[in-house]
Design a protein around this nucleic acid. Sequence first.
DNA 1: AGAAATTTTGACCAGTTGGAAAAATGTTAG
DNA 2: CTAACATTTTTCCAACTGGTCAAAATTTCT
Lengths: 239, 239
Amino acid sequence: MPPTKVKSAEVPIAATRQHKADAKAAVHPPAKPRPITRIQREKQDLILEAALEVFSLHGFRGATIDQIAEVAGMSKPNLLYYFPRKEEIHRRLMGELLVTWLAPLREMDENGDPFSEIRSYIRRKLEMARDFPRESRLFANEMLQGAPRIIEMIEVDLKNLVDEKAKVLLTWMDQGKLTRTDPYHLIFSIWATTQHYADFDVQVRAVLGPGRGGEGRFEDAARYLEQLFMFGLTPKTRA
Amino acid sequence: MPPTKVKSAEVPIAATRQHKADAKAAVHPPAKPRPITRIQREKQDLILEAALEVFSLHGFRGATIDQIAEVAGMSKPNLLYYFPRKEEIHRRLMGELLVTWLAPLREMDENGDPFSEIRSYIRRKLEMARDFPRESRLFANEMLQGAPRIIEMIEVDLKNLVDEKAKVLLTWMDQGKLTRTDPYHLIFSIWATTQHYADFDVQVRAVLGPGRGGEGRFEDAARYLEQLFMFGLTPKTRA
DNA sequence: AGAAATTTTGACCAGTTGGAAAAATGTTAG
DNA sequence: CTAACATTTTTCCAACTGGTCAAAATTTCT
């Protein structure tokens, strides 16, 4: 269970200090590839992990650089050496997150059996809610505020993926393998029901009480959701 | 469509100024009933309405008293005259909100027909997501942060209500009128699927696109959810 | 080792924030 | 009309915020 490790590819070296040596470096950008040291990657990951913790709990505005720095175990100026501004941290975090976040949907295979594909999708999403609740909350936080910093990603990447999968669902419906219904709202309902267990965790625990609010709640949820999405609430034997 | 007007009952007169006349007033608390002027009530409602707007958008920490005051059309010190601290505003807002928020569930009648009761509940919750999205987001914001300011209310009022209604659902299941399943997770799934349309509104609109993201989305959602909760995704005519 | 580059620190700053104090301005009952 | 009270405005402040900067400490490279 990796804590965060979403993906650390193209690390554009946090705006490497450019003071006096500016003249040279800035004028010949392609000349200096700037290798990216081991320390840089490690520290950046450390910061992103800390930022995930803090942002997911307080939202962008509510989180402070000091808090993030403290969680990351470094001083504020030191943190700012790697990410010159707060928004930069958030942007990176969201960008990497979205990829992970959509992976389960991406895996839904149009050549598989409709029901087992949907069931797997629900299960994977539920596992993510269980194992990566901070990521879920970070995402929810951003959405609640109108997604000001990631709206383009939502409108492009996410929309395209959903459009594509909606088509797959429609095909299955055409083949009579699935009740004919709205594929978009179907996807929304899967998102909503699964992410609920991460985003509203406090409420879920409080309502279930100490008895049933333990770790078993995810298995109960999985069982219930499978029932719901397969057959709804209509009993098989009519009363 | 009342903008907010959740409920303005027991208004404990925002800590009426107590400076020099303190001696008298403070020593004989039960002596002076303090009538609560019309202006006080009006201004307090104005502030709460503004606070709802701001808190729901930025969360507790992200919202500033200045912003709230500006939306309410008054100066910050003036606002602080009615609510001596930021947290006070939030507390009042959440307290009144919870009552409205739970009303739909409270209405679920154990003597009614199970399916029409559940259907009505879903419809009412969906209407609330449509007509009171700010309230929904305020609530979601608080939940995301671990409900630090309303955890007791959740653990008592909300839990009791859910326990009560879960019993009703169980009775219905015992009578064979409803598939036997987990009543708590059933309620969670109704909350999640309906509130999603308020809390993740930006995402819903973005994914549906300009064509289907208009006002019709709530009717589409209602239709889909009815289908889902009634029969799930299994087609009637097996392919 | 020693020079060059990278990383870390400490001091600092300007703008914002929640909130206090008191003076100034209504409002109203006698 | 005016004293008593309610409301509003002005001024102010200490703590916090995001961010800068130069110097010091450390690491890396030759």
